[in-house]
Every structure is written in C-alpha cells, then in structure tokens.
Amino acid sequence: MSAYYRAHRALTSGQALRPAEAAQLLAELRRENGEQLADAIAAQLDGTCRRAPGDSAAAYRKKSWTFATVMRVVANIRRLSALPVSPTIPNPRTNGSTA
C-alpha cells in the first residue's frame, strides 16, 4: 500500500492521526515522491545521452558530461528525499550593539 493511498485514506476517513503517525506518513510520501521523480528523470535521460552513429568525439563528451551531471542530481534527489526532516533554526544574529 503506497503512502499516497494511506494519506488519502487517513484524510477522507475522518479519523485523526497521531502526530508521530502523520510525520511518518509524510516522510514515506516524500521518499516515494523523490524516488518516482528520480526514476522519471533517469528514464527520460536514458535515450538522450547515448552515442549516435554520427556523433563526433566532442559531441559524445558533451553527452557523457551531461549524463554524469544529471545522474549526480538524481542521486542527490534520492538521498535528500530519504533524509529525515529536521527543522533548521538559524543562529541568532547580533548587530554588535552593547546597549
């Protein structure tokens, strides 16, 4: 059962989720969405970066560079979507005033 289905069922059933359950459900939903996005990007890229019969060495280098760059982005999407969310609290700033 996907996280999307469970979230939809929880919202439409009228039963309240405990905060821990809701947080876990949202984390699973974010992870699933990140995986789907990464898979879609990789599938879209699969056919565009192959070496064509008429490609020069420079054109192939450009394609391989593009492929490597996009695959790094895909890896970061997968990694970031799997990380737990923690709030980022900025450090308090002081303006140097002693008053």
Rank of each mutant, 00 (worst) to 15 (best):
residue 2 S to R: 14
residue 3 A to K: 03
residue 4 Y to V: 15
residue 5 Y to G: 10
residue 7 A to R: 13
residue 11 L to E: 09
residue 14 G to K: 05
residue 15 Q to I: 13
residue 17 L to H: 03
residue 17 L to K: 00
residue 18 R to W: 00
residue 18 R to M: 12
residue 20 A to N: 04
residue 21 E to S: 04
residue 22 A to Q: 02
residue 22 A to K: 01
residue 22 A to F: 01
residue 22 A to Y: 00
residue 23 A to M: 00
residue 26 L to C: 07
residue 27 A to N: 09
residue 28 E to Y: 04
residue 28 E to M: 03
residue 30 R to K: 01
residue 31 R to I: 07
residue 31 R to A: 10
residue 31 R to M: 05
residue 32 E to I: 15
residue 32 E to F: 14
residue 35 E to D: 05
residue 35 E to A: 04
residue 36 Q to L: 12
residue 36 Q to A: 11
residue 36 Q to M: 06
residue 38 A to S: 04
residue 39 D to L: 06
residue 39 D to F: 07
residue 41 I to E: 12
residue 45 L to M: 09
residue 46 D to N: 05
residue 48 T to M: 15
residue 49 C to Q: 06
residue 49 C to I: 15
residue 51 R to W: 03
residue 53 P to R: 01
residue 54 G to S: 07
residue 54 G to N: 05
residue 57 A to I: 01
residue 58 A to M: 03
residue 58 A to Y: 02
residue 58 A to D: 04
residue 59 A to C: 06
residue 61 R to G: 01
residue 61 R to K: 04
residue 63 K to L: 04
residue 63 K to A: 04
residue 65 W to H: 14
residue 67 F to N: 15
residue 68 A to R: 12
residue 69 T to H: 03
residue 69 T to F: 07
residue 71 M to G: 06
residue 72 R to Y: 03
residue 76 N to D: 14
residue 77 I to D: 00
residue 78 R to H: 06
residue 78 R to M: 12
residue 79 R to M: 13
residue 79 R to F: 13
residue 80 L to S: 08
residue 80 L to W: 05
residue 83 L to P: 05
residue 84 P to S: 08
residue 86 S to G: 03
residue 86 S to V: 15
residue 87 P to N: 08
residue 87 P to R: 07
residue 89 I to L: 08
residue 89 I to K: 08
residue 90 P to A: 14
residue 90 P to I: 15
residue 91 N to P: 01
residue 92 P to W: 09
residue 93 R to S: 15
residue 94 T to D: 12
residue 94 T to I: 11
residue 98 T to K: 13
residue 98 T to H: 06
